[in-house]
Amino acid sequence: MRPFTKHTGLAAPLDLANVDTDMIIPKQFLKSIKRTGFGKNLFDELRYEDEGQPDQECDGRPIREEFILNQPRYKGASVLLARQNFGCGSSREHAPWALDDYGFRSVIAPSFADIFYNNCFKNGLLPIVLQTEEVDQLFAEVALREGAEIIVDLENQTVTSPSGTQFEFMVDNFRKHCLLNGLDDIGLTLQQESSIRRYEEKRMNDAPWLFLSRGQ
């Protein structure tokens, strides 16, 4: 996994609460068996006027001019400002894959849905929860000046607004450690192989019916 340490980037404000994973990446694009290539269909229904199809070229499609990612001033944005309960709905990891593929490195919101929040960390995308007032301030500052950048510092757990105000955020130590070092979760868990085997032995004794092999 690509590590995340510190990132400075253009912020795009998505001023909409309860953005669900169907909005982030509609179902027709979930038929892919790859992890990449979802960026062009990120927010497909908000971004384009027509119904997108998998494997379709997106360059000539009619766009919704008012949508933030279609506004020239937010071209190249890598920090997404969002509202409450971002990422609610399905468990599709295609949502963080699409955000990542588009070029986002971090999403800042007052709250996230659990599964989405969790999925982000597996993909080097940093979800940050700030107080509602702090998010409000970021929205206001980003609207004020074209090209406004936000600094996200994972090591120090701070977000710096375009005007230089610093906000602190919380992150679990283990997730932080993995993200800072780009560590593969599976490799780390497999280091605990003996603990897992010990658990299995005990459990097989207490609840043997859980370990019966199934026929076809």
Binding site: R35, S90, S91, R92, E93, P96, I115, N118, N119, K122, N123, D185, I186
Partner: peptide
Amino acid sequence: GIGTSEVE
């Protein structure tokens, strides 16, 4: 419910 990385 889990994501694909967790499935793996």
